[in-house]
Amino acid sequence: MTHDDAGINANILHLPFADATRSVRHVFVRDYETEAEIGVYSHEKGAHQKIRINVDLSVLEATDHHDDQLDNVVCYHDIVKGIQTILTAGHINLVETLAEKIAALALDDNRVIGVRVKVEKLEAIKEAMSVGVEIERHRRP
């Protein structure tokens, strides 16, 4: 087992998204737990399930300083509000679809050059702590 950057035992290794040589900052949302209408099976339709979402963003830093102003940075609160908007829009069949929608939301900000999204269903398989998907997407030049 490897350790992720949150210091918790995990079976995946998160690569660092911050890189001073490229003027890239790491913005993240860690272990956001909520409920969602998600799943393809009949017992999942019209029901809410517990999910956990992690989002890692590679963000280009401006050449000038952010001046301690929220408008000058990518805000993790805006990412969470965007996730909530996606989830309240209606039923989603696949965790893959939810991950792609979150990645697209993040990449809508031109300062975001890369995003990793992990979506976990916490109660789908009784014998497993969680099941889900993790994707990584980059801005196309």
Rank of each mutant, 00 (worst) to 15 (best):
V73F: 03
H65I: 12
A99S: 12
T85V: 11
H65M: 03
A62C: 11
L87R: 04
S23L: 14
G46K: 04
I53P: 07
S23G: 06
A104Q: 09
V119Q: 13
C75V: 01
K81I: 02
K121F: 07
H48G: 01
L60C: 05
E123A: 14
I113M: 10
S42D: 15
I53C: 06
R116Y: 01
A124T: 13
L122E: 05
T63K: 08
V115C: 10
A18P: 03
L98K: 09
A18H: 11
N72R: 15
I51S: 04
Y32D: 03
L60I: 00
E33L: 09
I125T: 06
I38Q: 08
L98S: 14
K81N: 15
V115Q: 00
I92H: 06
V74N: 10
H26E: 14
A106D: 07
D109R: 07
T97H: 11
E61Q: 14
Y41M: 13
A103V: 10
T85E: 14
V24N: 06
T85A: 15
V117S: 07
D64Q: 10
S130P: 01
G46P: 06
A18C: 03
D64S: 13
R30C: 01
Q84C: 13
Y41E: 10
H26M: 05
D68G: 15
Y32W: 13
Q84G: 13
E100M: 07
L87C: 08
V27W: 08
A103F: 12
D64L: 10
Q69G: 02
N54W: 07
T85M: 07
V112D: 03
L57S: 04
E33Q: 15
R116N: 09
D64K: 06
D31G: 01
E127P: 00
V27L: 00
H77M: 01
A20Q: 11
V133Y: 02
Q84D: 15
N93H: 13
I83Q: 03
M129H: 11
G46D: 01
H43N: 09
I102P: 09
N93K: 12
V59D: 00
K121L: 09
D78V: 02
V24W: 12
L107I: 00
S58Y: 04
L105P: 04
A62E: 07
V131W: 03
V133F: 10
D19C: 02
L60W: 00
R52W: 00
I102M: 02
S23I: 02
M129Y: 09
K50C: 09
I102W: 00
L107E: 04
H43E: 13
M129P: 00
G82H: 11
D68Q: 04
A128I: 03
K101A: 08
E96I: 08
V27T: 12
K81D: 14
E127S: 15
R116L: 03
E35W: 04
E61G: 10
V59I: 04
E37L: 01
A36S: 12
G46E: 05
R30S: 13
R52K: 15
A89H: 12
T97Q: 10
Q84W: 07
L98A: 08
K121H: 10
E44K: 14
L87M: 10
L107F: 05
F28Q: 05
L107C: 12
S58K: 00
K118Y: 00
M129E: 15
I83M: 05
A124P: 13
L87E: 08
